[in-house]
Design a protein around this nucleic acid. Structure first.
Lengths: 147, 147
DNA sequence: CAATAATAGTTTCAATTGATACCAACCCCT
DNA sequence: AGGGGTTGGTATCAATTGAAACTATTATTG
């Protein structure tokens, strides 16, 4: 029989399985260790990298929905981890940056994140990981094309 | 600065991005073409491969939550795509199989699925795809370990 | 063979999600 | 200047999700 589909070999399916397995692990760890959801943690990470950024930019970088970004930002501001400064050049938006507490938290979370990553990916060689991420990026590009 | 985390290179994050991009594309296509959610479509695919199977087994194979499987099964039975036969050897469970209509649908959906997959993954060589799926499986194994 | 634990499947409920609508501010065009 | 369209962000609402409780059946153990 030609052209037979086996779910087990169907790449979108495999990708989803793997992503969920990894995400679940990480999500539980973040939640229990720092009380952070994945979107919240992503905001912290992105903002730590750039210092000041608008929500729209965060959405673009992380491909998170703007609603998701909005809620995560509100939650983090509420917890004193994030600060909002008025954006002079566009008064609709705010510039988000980490508060002192936010930077402290980040200093705790980042190594933990790398450790979690290492625990799952330790068994792979740098070359394998490199090839893998390259594939992921190429797939991203393919999925985004012609829509 | 050593040990700096860049979200952009954080593998769990990249994996999630890619998986979501691909899933969204597929989900929209299935929904608009066949009125199927992804869990529903997975049931159809798995059941087509094996003929008769319990929900528990489906959950095991696909790593979908039993609640998700239950709801998809109910929906598919309701639409006449799936049939439930009593399982003589265990009266708690049912044996699910495709109805005639279900097989017809599957005959339509499967090639479409392969085509969608091809559209995103066409640019990769068989060797690349092979290496990629191998990585995914190894990651699955790593993520499942010691938990 | 009770009685206890485990399993298949469903229901319930609370949380997360994203589509949509909305407001305010901006941009562009004439 | 002043509409017409776009964009940043929030609010609302309906759908999806999974944890936990529940029912019915099966397995295990004393």
């Amino acid at each position: 029989m030609t052209n037979r589909l086996q779910l087990d070999r169907f790449l979108p399916y495999r990708l989803s399985i793997t992503s969920n397995l990894v995400s679940d692990r990480i999500a539980h760890a973040y939640e229990s260790m720092f009380g952070l959801t994945i979107p919240e943690w992503r905001l912290v990470a992105v903002i730590a990298e750039v210092d000041a950024i608008t929500q729209a930019e965060i959405g673009e970088r992380t491909r998170m929905d703007k609603v998701t970004v909005s809620r995560a930002a509100i939650a983090l501001v509420g917890r004193g981890l994030l600060e909002r400064a008025p954006n002079e050049s566009d008064k609709r938006s705010h510039l988000l940056s980490l508060s002192a507490a936010g930077r402290e938290l980040y200093a705790l979370v980042a190594p933990k994140a790398l450790e979690l990553e290492a625990r799952v990916f330790a068994r792979f060689t740098p070359a394998e990981l490199e090839a893998f991420t390259t594939m992921l990026r190429r797939i991203d590009a393919a999925a985004l094309e012609e829509d």
